[in-house]
Design a protein around this nucleic acid. Structure first.
Lengths: 191, 191
DNA sequence: GTGCTTGTTGCACGAACGTATAACGAGGTG
DNA sequence: CACCTCGTTATACGTTCGTGCAACAAGCAC
């Protein structure tokens, strides 16, 4: 019983509902009916606007990846010209709103599990992580990290950030986002 | 069409089949019928021996967690008495067979996604990670890490190891297990 | 050999899944 | 106002899910 909306708005609503459902009920609960109910529309709309639930999930992945990348870029832009500050801001932003939001972390984890076994989703993941690492290598290079150590260093930073994300999502009582930010900062300081 | 077997053997077979299916088809493919087919038995046996697929998955989680903990403990025991060597062995073992096995990493990732939304599975995860961190704090303390920095340091090491695991599983072409071991060793050396 | 225990199977059942499709109705254009 | 476009709903269909249940058969006690 929802009002008529423009295709763009409706697509946005459905993606937002997918993200919400993924965060609250995990990958197993991301059915067409559940998502449609969360968006307040009928299940048929998913097929109508996306052609299938798989493509809706893929669109949700793209949306979140773009949102995360934009938040990181905003943090870098606001850090001023100093290379170390820009690198620190890029990493610390991963533990600051809106990225540090536990619901977003839960959504990302559910998408990871859905990515396994789906070639298109795996390619999306690969592309997003390659972009993340490339940006990291860029910022690390500006801080004077030797070119031959650039790749491994970027992988290590990415892994640390991902691991802190994961534990923050699965065991939110073990430590705080502030502590995660501090662990990452110490790691960068040690390079 | 399987021969009669003892309950213990059959339970072991079913757990092994669950781990295999989880690794090959992800969390979405872990249905009773798929698991039973992988074990070469009828679907009804899952209910008969475990009382439901949820408890079979939980038992698989326990089995893997115990297997990983045992492999880590073996590595520590084989490292001699020096505290630094013991710590290094404990961390490096995470990227050595049998833990470094990509299939095991895939299984673990699938179990993580299944753990979300299930209170019993979340409790299992919490318990396993608490044990992992406690052992890590023990080894770090023996190396002279200050008591007040122990908790945060252990969280950071755990996060780095988990992140390297994850990326190794999702993007196996990005870097090798050897490189992961080296990144972790460098991190420990910087403490 | 006879009978009992119990591992094992095959089937059936209800529920939930994804999606195709026809009918409905709101909103813009003539 | 009439008409058409298209977003939306409701329904239906086939598949797959988890699991309960009755029947079968293998191994053991006697």
């Amino acid at each position: 019983m929802s009002k008529r909306a423009s295709p763009d708005d409706r697509r946005r609503d459905l993606i937002a509902a997918t993200v919400r459902v993924l965060a609250e009920r995990g990958a197993a609960g991301a059915s067409v009916r559940t998502i449609a109910a969360a968006a307040g529309v009928s299940p048929g709309l998913v097929t109508h606007h996306f052609g299938g639930v798989d493509r809706l999930v893929a669109a949700s992945y793209d949306h979140i990846a773009a949102q995360v990348a934009a938040a990181l870029e905003t943090a870098v832009a606001g850090a001023g010209p100093a290379p170390r500050a820009r690198l620190g801001a890029y990493v610390a932003a991963n533990f600051t709103a809106p990225i540090a939001d536990p619901a977003l972390l839960a959504t990302w984890l559910a998408l990871w599990s859905l990515a396994r076994g789906d070639a298109a989703m795996l390619a999306r993941h690969e592309q997003h992580y390659a972009a993340f690492r490339a940006r990291l290598e860029d910022l690390l290079g500006a801080c004077g990290v030797a070119a031959e150590r650039l790749r491994l260093t970027a992988i290590g930073v990415t892994a640390l950030v991902d691991g802190l994300w994961l534990e923050l999502c699965l065991s939110p009582d073990s430590f705080s986002a502030d502590e995660a930010r501090r662990i990452a900062a110490d790691y960068l300081a040690g390079l």
